[in-house]
């Protein structure tokens, strides 16, 4: 399970902490790499700039992607992920505060695998993260493994 790490793209430190806690509480002990914005997330995935020395063959088991991000927003990041053969099959779950139609529809159109609204009520979020972990980390084998 160790190499099955998660990439969390989140600019809000509170949300980051809460998400990490939720994962921990749900016994999802995979390593979580956090990117603070869209550009950083893509640099990490494509082993550029600061991450140039990273092994590009090592890709996250799951990407949790916030939509509202500095520099490059989540939908653009998603578009880049899906455009690159290296990452186009990675499962991407959109994590967002918004429930605007354009966000939901846009995400799915660009190839998001799931869409989770970050609820204010933390119980609900915990619940959602638990199911998320079960599905994407345990039950569903990532495409590049097939």
């Amino acid at each position: 399970m160790l190499d099955k790490f998660i990439l969390l793209v989140e600019d809000n430190p509170d949300d980051e902490a809460l998400t990490l806690r939720a994962l921990k509480k749900n016994n999802i002990s995979n390593e979580v790499h956090v990117a603070r914005d869209g550009v950083e997330a893509l640099d990490f995935l494509f082993c550029r700039e600061a991450h140039a020395d990273r092994n590009s063959a090592s890709q996250p088991q799951l990407i949790l992607l916030d939509l509202k991000l500095p520099r490059m927003d989540g939908l653009e990041v998603l578009k880049e992920i899906r455009a690159n053969p290296l990452t186009k099959l990675l499962p991407v779950v959109i994590l967002t505060t918004s429930n605007e139609d354009c966000d939901v529809i846009g995400s799915y159109e660009l190839g998001a695998n799931s869409f989770i609204r970050k609820p204010v009520d933390f119980d609900q979020f915990m619940d959602a993260v638990r199911q998320l972990g079960l599905y994407w980390l345990v039950l569903n084998e990532s495409g590049d493994r097939r």
């Binding site: 809000n12 509170d14 949300d15 902490a17 809460l18 806690r21 939509l67 509202k68 967002t96 505060t97 918004s98 429930n99 605007e100 970050k118 609820p119 204010v120 009520d121 933390f122 119980d123 979020f125």
Partner: peptide, 22 residues
Amino acid sequence: FSYSVSHDLRAPLRSISGFSQA
């Protein structure tokens, strides 16, 4: 504005609620 409200106004609430819960 609505988009911003929808995202940014809720984020602090989530912090309040989430860390209260924690």
